[in-house]
Structure formats: structure tokens, C-alpha cells
Design a protein around this nucleic acid. Structure first.
Lengths: 262, 262
DNA sequence: TTTTAGTTACCATTTTGGTAGTCACTATTT
DNA sequence: AAATAGTGACTACCAAAATGGTAACTAAAA
């Protein structure tokens, strides 16, 4: 039971509790049998679980039996523990944090899927004017909520792949042999107000991304997304007098004029 | 930083991250100095934090510097991790739980403060008719929310000590030399529909309590609370023809007649 | 020459998972 | 009736892994 280990219990403790939840009130011997924990260890493990309040002991005339803390009680306990701990942590860390101005031209390496996603979500919430994205479906779903939340006050431009109902203002990538190849490398780009940006390889792969506030990087990658959008629109359009049309489209995309803040 | 250890980081990891949050972007050497972690260990620790996405590495021409993941991003990450894990756990455990009828005449031993409190909260939420309590202030505060929530549909009787604004239907214990003595032993009682009950020594002490569904225990302890209430009311009243008055009061307290369910 | 920066190679302790073997009592098979 | 298998309870270890902690060495910069 991986989830129980994640909240601080050992493998044996997790197995014991789960076994007890399955079986109800039984003897220690039975717990050992059901859970596969060596008989010799079951008593000290149950003891530690009793100390932690996860298991209830009942001494009867004909021996001792153990019951699991009811699941709903356990969940309530776990939740309120977490809440307290989180509140504490939050307060302390926020007090400590020195709000130094982050220097320009930074490129930070982000690792670990949940870190990358959390960072993206924070940035989206911070956006004030324009967000440019290039996202595949699973990544989009991870930040759908945040995007839809800010969509009213912020222009969201860009392209999505395989996403079912993205924000109306973004383009949908046409299906090509390239986008369908399972081996093709997937990248994503998320640019916030042309000031900050996260881009990287795709979450399911090696879980690596970069944060930057460097203007050159931002320009290049925004343009990269723009070209992707452009080609896509061209294919759809397929007409003449492309040149002027492209420049108009580009202006509209980047909102280089006529954009009025709400 | 105890809170960080509680969510799975080691002491060194916690110290490193906290130090980085305090100092902002610095070299590994500085982290070691600020946090008190031996220089010889700081590199592998930062490495592990980078893998976990808590620390960002930046390699510059004149050396490598490390930044903490911004506190708000970290908190969002921690929260969403917890949420996922909790959801999983909740589903799995609820599926496993066999809803065997708990036998009568149980007396279970509850240990650990948060376990006791969580159990009390669950019982209060389950109450349908009548709750009888005998609670000191700190314990009352732990379950104030739950009590006030069910107060409309459920009769709440009993006595509280030192509680500021308890439910109107409960009595306030008079201040005596006994209630004020810091050494006096504190007990609490919580009886739900005269079917289930938790009673025990007080949370700040040895953190031991008992759950029972045994009718005898419940009768005895409910009566014990009743006597406490009664004596209290007597002192306030201090009149004659007490006998009849007591029996009337008792009836009202236990709602032995005339109680209509809502 | 002290401070900063980076690295290798250990070691001790604690936690955790896992084994062996003992004792007593009960139920069942031979 | 004796032998056997299963249940229930407990002591004493042991090995591996994780974690905290030390010594010492290099090399540049201040």
C-alpha cells in the first residue's frame, strides 16, 4: 500500500492496517497470516500501530484481538493532521522567504513532473496580459482549470494537440503523420506576459523543463509557437496573397497594436 | 523543520531547503555554511532535492548556484501531491472495509490524541437523537464545529468546564477549588444516542480513551454526567421541595417522555 | 594565508525488513 | 492414546538500507 507509506507508515505497518481493515477484528496471529508479515514481528508492529492510534486492542478472556481504526475515522485523522502540518509549514516558509528580485537572464532547470506542473500553474495565475502556449493533451489537462480561470482577463494564444475543448482563442494543431508518431518528441511552451516562460520536454518522458526570464529565449520560443500556429492556419486557408495575410495574422497574434487592457 | 520531515524529507533536506528559502540563490558552499550541514554532504543532498524538484540548479561561468523552488510553488506542489495520495487511499480503503456488525459489549482502547479526537468527531456526525457530553474547554474546542453543526437536529445535553460560549442546551460547571486545581484529574464523556460512547482521561494527559457500546457502561456514565449536572443546578437553585424538582429535571434531561423527533 | 568551492572516502546509528527457534495449548488424524 | 498439525504468543537475533556525521585532500580566489 504505497499511499500509506507516503504518509509515514512502514511497509509492515501499512500491510497490517490494510489486513485488519479487510478482516475486521482478529487475533495477531491472523493478521500475520493474512498480511504475510512474519509472526515474530507482528506483535511489535501492532504495538506501534496502537501507539499511533491506528489499531485498537481488546483483551478478552480467551486472548487478545485487534481491530482497525474505522476507515472514516482514520481518514479524518489523516486529513486533520495534514491540515495542521500544512498550515504550520505554509506560515513558516512564507515568513522566511526573502523577496529578492530575481535577476534577469536566468535559466533554471526544473525537474520532477509535479514540480513542473505546479510551477506552470503558479505562473498562469500570475499572468496579467497574455499567455502563449503550445501544449499536448495530457499537459493541457493538468492546467486546464487554471487556464480557464484566467481566460477572461488574459489573452490566451497558441496551439494545442489532441485537446478536446481547449480555450476558444487557441488553435488546434492539424493531425499529421508526425503528431501521431508515438516516438516523436514532445515539447511544451508556456509563456507569461512575455516576461517569464517554462518550456521543456514532455511530462511523461524524462521530466525536464526550463524556466527563463531571458528575453532572447522568450522571443525565440514565442516565435517558434507562432510559426507553428501560422503553418497550421496556412494549411487550413490555402489561398493566394499570403504575404499580407501572414503579417496581419502575426499582428493579431502578438497583439502588437490595438490591444486594450480590460 | 519538523513539518518538512513530516511530509517525507530528511533533516538535511529540510535544513537545506529552508536555508535556501532564507538566503535565495547561493552556492552550495553557502548552503552548507548557513544550514550547518557538513560541506562533505551538501552536494549529494542538493542533488537529491533537485531530483525531487525542490531545488533548482543554475550553472554559471563562475560556478554553480542553487535556488529554492519558490515557496508558493512548493506549497501548491505539496498540496496537490497530498490530494492525489489521499484520494487514492480513501478509495482503496473504503473498498476494502468489510462492514461487519460490531458485536455488543465492546470496550476498545483508543490511544493517541488525534485518534481520539477524530473518533469523537465521527461519532458526533453520526448522532441522530441525543448527545450527552462532559467536556473541558480545550477538548470542547476540538469538536466545537461538529457539535454546532449537528445541534439543530440533535439534543445536546451535559456539562462543560471553562468553555466560553458552548451550545445553549448544556450546563456550565460552577467554578470550585476542585475544578481550578491544576493537578485534578480531568475526564471527558461523549455519549451518542445512548448507543455508543467515548470516555477517557484528558487529551493533554496520557492520551487514553475508551470506546464502548456496552449498555451498562453507557448507563453508568450518562448517569454520572447527569449527577454532575444535577448538583450544579441544585447549587444554583438552592430552594426547598427538591425531590420533585430533581425528578422533573431528570426527566427533562434524559427526555424520557415528550420528546418528538424532528 | 584564510576563505571559498568542490570532492572522495569513510563511519556510526537507527530504522526497517527478515530469520530462527521456543513454549503452550487445541483440534484432528491415525 | 499417541502423533501431528494448527493456532497464539514471544525472545533474540541479523542484514540491509537510510541517515547523520567525520577526516582529509585539492584548488582557486581574496
Amino acid at each position: 500500500m504505497q499511499q500509506l507509506k507516503a504518509i509515514g507508515y512502514t511497509e509492515y505497518e501499512a500491510k497490517s492496517y490494510v489486513s485488519l481493515v479487510k478482516s475486521g477484528t482478529v487475533t495477531a496471529y491472523q493478521v500475520s497470516k493474512n498480511s504475510g508479515i512474519p509472526r515474530a514481528r507482528i506483535y511489535d508492529i501492532l504495538k506501534s500501530l496502537i501507539e499511533k492510534g491506528l489499531v485498537l486492542k481488546e483483551e478478552k478472556i480467551d486472548g487478545t484481538v485487534y481491530s482497525p481504526l474505522p476507515v472514516d475515522v482514520f481518514l479524518e485523522k489523516a486529513q486533520s493532521n495534514w491540515q495542521k502540518n500544512y498550515q504550520n509549514l505554509s506560515n513558516k516558509l512564507k515568513q522566511l522567504e526573502t523577496t529578492e528580485e530575481s535577476p534577469d537572464n536566468q535559466i533554471l532547470i526544473l525537474k520532477e513532473k509535479t514540480t513542473i506542473i505546479s510551477y506552470c500553474r503558479m505562473l498562469i495565475r500570475k499572468a496579467e496580459k497574455r499567455i502563449i502556449i503550445s501544449l499536448w493533451d495530457d499537459m493541457y489537462e493538468e492546467m486546464r482549470e487554471e487556464l480557464e480561470e484566467v481566460a477572461e482577463g488574459v489573452q490566451i494564444q497558441g496551439i494545442t494537440l489532441h485537446v478536446d475543448h481547449p480555450i476558444k482563442t487557441v488553435d488546434l494543431h492539424r493531425i499529421t503523420h508526425f503528431t501521431e508518431a508515438p516516438t516523436s518528441k514532445r515539447w511544451f511552451v508556456l509563456s507569461i506576459d512575455a516576461k517569464e516562460m517554462i518550456y521543456g520536454s514532455y511530462v511523461n518522458d524524462c521530466e525536464l523543463a526550463f524556466y527563463t526570464n531571458d528575453q532572447v529565449h522568450i522571443y525565440l520560443l514565442e516565435d517558434y509557437v507562432w510559426h507553428d500556429v501560422l503553418v497550421n492556419r496556412l494549411v487550413k486557408r490555402n489561398k493566394d496573397n499570403l504575404e499580407q495575410w501572414i503579417s496581419e495574422e502575426r499582428k493579431k497574434f502578438f497583439m502588437e497594436d490595438g490591444f486594450v487592457e480590460k
